[in-house]
Amino acid sequence: MSHDTDSVRTVAELLKDERLGVLTTVAPDGTLIARPMALQEVEFDGDLWFFAERGSRKLAHVAADPRVNVAVGSGASWVSVAGVGEQVEDVAKKRELWSKGVEAWLPDGPDSPQAVLLRVRAESAEYWDTPGSRVATLLSFVKSKATGERLEGENERVDL
Rank of each mutant, 00 (worst) to 15 (best):
K93P: 04
K94P: 07
S80K: 09
V102L: 11
K100N: 09
V116E: 03
K100S: 12
D90Q: 03
G101H: 04
S124Y: 08
E89C: 03
R95F: 09
Q114E: 11
V88G: 13
G85H: 06
S112W: 04
L118H: 04
G75M: 05
S99Q: 01
V91F: 08
E89T: 07
L118S: 01
G73H: 11
V84W: 01
E123M: 10
D111Q: 11
K93D: 06
E123F: 03
W78M: 09
P110E: 10
P113H: 00
E103Q: 08
V88F: 08
R121C: 02
V81K: 06
E96R: 15
P113N: 01
Q87Y: 02
V91D: 15
V102F: 02
D111P: 02
A82S: 13
S77G: 13
G75A: 12
W105D: 01
A82R: 14
G109M: 04
V84C: 03
A92S: 06
A92W: 07
E123L: 05
S80W: 12
V91T: 15
V88L: 10
P110H: 07
D108K: 09
V84Y: 07
G109I: 04
E103C: 10
G75H: 04
L118F: 00
S99T: 12
Q87D: 05
V120C: 04
W98P: 04
D90L: 01
Q87W: 10
P113V: 02
P107M: 10
W98T: 02
S77R: 12
S124L: 09
A122T: 08
P107R: 13
